[in-house]
């Protein structure tokens, strides 16, 4: 899923400082799963904004709503009758949501209420980790089903670098050295030869480096 963090309240209050009536719009997709932009978080943010503004002697009306997904025009369409009734809309979806909204409702101002972070998953309750860099050509099967592009700080194809110590990355002792894990896994499997190949440089055209990406599935286009 896409993992995000909510922006600090101060930053959000600043975005809506001139507004009297706003909508906080959540998304039931990834941001609900990572506890940052679902029904519950919409409620918390709406209350926080109202309390802060009331304290400032400048009350604000905040309407809460959460839709199935903000990355799908079908659901974006469902708020058609409402969005223009507000001075602004704070979207709690990933970076896709406010853009889809803005494309659909050109006259309204949308603000991102979260910072979109990475593609990952929850390794335990409350802890999410990056697993995929979305490079467009998956290579993980060569590396013990572990992704060095997303998980090595230097995206090395031939690791670990000279900074690997005690299975952690040189840049932060809280980051696993994924190459250490790859090597140990291969050693246990007796497949060290898999790591003795000189691999050709990666073709980054399938990643963002090839320009903004678009997928077309003819069979689905009516």
């Amino acid at each position: 899923m896409i993992v995000a963090d909510r922006k600090p309240l101060g930053e959000l209050l600043d975005m809506v400082k001139d507004c009297k009536k706003i909508m906080v719009l959540g998304c039931k997709g990834c941001v609900t799963v990572c506890n940052v932009g679902g029904v519950k978080e919409v409620e918390v943010l709406a209350s926080s904004i109202k309390i802060a503004r009331k304290k400032d002697g400048n009350p604000i009306e905040v309407v809460e709503k959460t839709i199935e997904r903000q990355c799908d025009p079908e659901y974006i369409e469902l708020v058609k009758g409402e969005v223009n009734a507000f001075d602004a809309v704070l979207s709690m979806a990933c970076g896709v949501g406010p853009q889809f909204l803005a494309e659909a409702y050109e006259d309204q101002t949308f603000y991102p209420a979260v910072d979109t972070k990475f593609f990952g998953g929850a390794v335990q309750h409350g802890i999410w980790e990056e697993r995929c860099a979305g490079c467009g050509t998956c290579l993980i099967h060569y590396f013990g089903t572990l992704c060095p592009i997303a998980r090595c700080s230097k995206s090395l194809i031939h690791g670990p670098c000279g900074g690997s110590a005690n299975s952690v990355c040189e840049i932060d002792s809280d980051i696993e050295c994924i190459w250490d894990t790859v090597v140990r896994k291969k050693m246990e499997q007796g497949r060290l030869d898999d790591l003795r190949q000189v691999r050709t440089p990666k073709d980054w055209r399938t990643a963002r480096d090839g320009g903004p990406r678009k997928r077309k599935r003819e069979e689905l286009i009516s």
């Binding site: 031939h158 670990p160 000279g162 005690n166 299975s167 050295c177 140990r184 050693m187 003795r196 000189v198």
Partner: peptide
């Protein structure tokens, strides 16, 4: 370059070989 002192030690010579 080669760092014989990084981990995992047993792998460093293989990285050198590569």
């Amino acid at each position: 370059a080669s760092n014989p002192f990084a981990d995992p030690f047993e792998f460093r010579v293989h990285r050198l070989a590569t």
